[in-house]
């Protein structure tokens, strides 16, 4: 759960900034999808755009979490052991 929040929350915040910056500069109606102009409404493009940003940012957060594991955690490798170990080392 904690890892999920670490992945989803920062990516949500950054996606919000990215959304504002991107769509302030670019009109959704000027976007092309597979070489064709998009036929979605602006609201739909904004919403889909936000979730795309969120997904990309979440992927980045997930990768950060993944490579942050210590060598001990990687060597043991089971998820249950990882969590337990992490809590123990923190405390």
């Amino acid at each position: 759960m904690r890892q999920l929040i670490w992945i989803l929350w920062p990516s949500f915040v950054v996606a919000g900034f990215a959304e504002v910056a991107f769509f302030t500069l670019i009109d959704p109606q000027e976007l092309y999808l597979f070489g064709e102009p998009t036929h979605f409404s602006r609201t739909a493009t904004y919403s889909i755009g936000f979730f795309c940003f969120w997904a990309v940012c979440a992927a980045s957060s997930m990768f950060t979490c993944f490579i942050q594991r210590s060598s001990d955690e990687v060597n043991r490798c089971t998820i249950a052991a990882t969590c337990k170990d992490r809590v123990l080392t923190r405390n």
Partner: peptide, 8 residues
Amino acid sequence: APSAPLYE
């Protein structure tokens, strides 16, 4: 004291 883990 060490704080409780987030949401656990």
